[in-house]
Measured scan of single mutants.
Amino acid sequence: SPISQSQFIPLGEILCLAISAMNSARKPVTQEALMEHLTTCFPGVPTPSQEILRHTLNTLVRERKIYPTPDGYFIVTP
């Protein structure tokens, strides 16, 4: 029987999409709110552990794709 394939999207890209959507909705993007958003909006995607989430967010900050503030994470705009 054929095996169904799913699209692979890197966690960093999913986080950027989620942060962008939450920023547009003016929702604060904390790590907890981000986990909740991922569970709700990406039900088929396994939720990352806190450690993996933190590591991926730090990587995105180093890559200058997002930036942290006391009010949460935001997408870097050119």
Rank of each mutant, 00 (worst) to 15 (best):
I19V: 05
E63A: 11
T40G: 09
R64I: 01
T39R: 13
E32K: 09
E36Y: 05
I75P: 10
E36L: 08
L38G: 00
E51G: 06
L15H: 00
L57C: 04
R26A: 11
C16Q: 15
L53W: 05
I9H: 03
I52A: 07
D71Q: 09
T40K: 10
M35R: 06
E13R: 15
P68F: 11
V45F: 15
R64Y: 04
P46A: 07
G12C: 05
T56W: 11
A21D: 12
V45G: 06
I3T: 11
L34Y: 00
H37T: 02
R62M: 14
Q50A: 12
E63M: 09
A25D: 13
P2A: 07
G12V: 01
L15R: 00
F74I: 12
T47Y: 05
P78I: 02
P78R: 14
L11Y: 12
F8Y: 02
F74M: 15
I75L: 11
E63P: 00
L34G: 00
L38A: 02
I14M: 13
R62C: 09
T77N: 15
V76T: 10
M22Q: 03
S24T: 15
K65W: 03
N58S: 10
A25F: 07
P68D: 10
Q50M: 14
L57W: 03
C16K: 05
S24D: 11
S1L: 04
I75A: 10
F42S: 14
M22A: 03
T30A: 04
E51K: 12
V45A: 07
F42G: 05
T69P: 01
A18Q: 03
A33I: 02
I75M: 15
T56K: 09
I75D: 05
P68L: 13
P48D: 02
L11F: 14
N23R: 05
T39Y: 13
S24A: 12
F42D: 15
P2Y: 15
S49L: 01
F74S: 15
P2G: 07
T47I: 15
I3K: 10
L34W: 00
A33H: 13
F74D: 10
P70V: 13
I66T: 02
T47L: 08
P10Y: 12
I52T: 13
A18W: 01
A18K: 02
T77A: 11
T47H: 04
G44P: 08
S20T: 12
V45H: 15
P68M: 10
Q5E: 11
L53P: 00
G72D: 10
E13T: 11
T69M: 05
K27C: 08
T77Y: 07
S49W: 00
I75G: 10
T47A: 07
S20N: 15
E13W: 02
E36Q: 14
H55S: 12
R26Y: 03
P2V: 12
S1I: 01
K65R: 10
L53N: 00
Q7M: 15
L57Q: 00
L34D: 00
L15Q: 00
S24I: 13
A33F: 03
S20P: 01
E32M: 07
L53H: 00
N23T: 05
S4D: 15
T77C: 14
A33P: 02
P28S: 07
S4L: 11
R64W: 03
E13Y: 15
L53V: 12
F8T: 07
V61L: 09
K27A: 08
K65N: 01
S49R: 03
T47V: 15
A21Y: 15
A25R: 08
G44T: 10
V29K: 00
I9Y: 07
L11E: 02
R26E: 11
P70A: 13
T39G: 13
Y67F: 11
A25I: 09
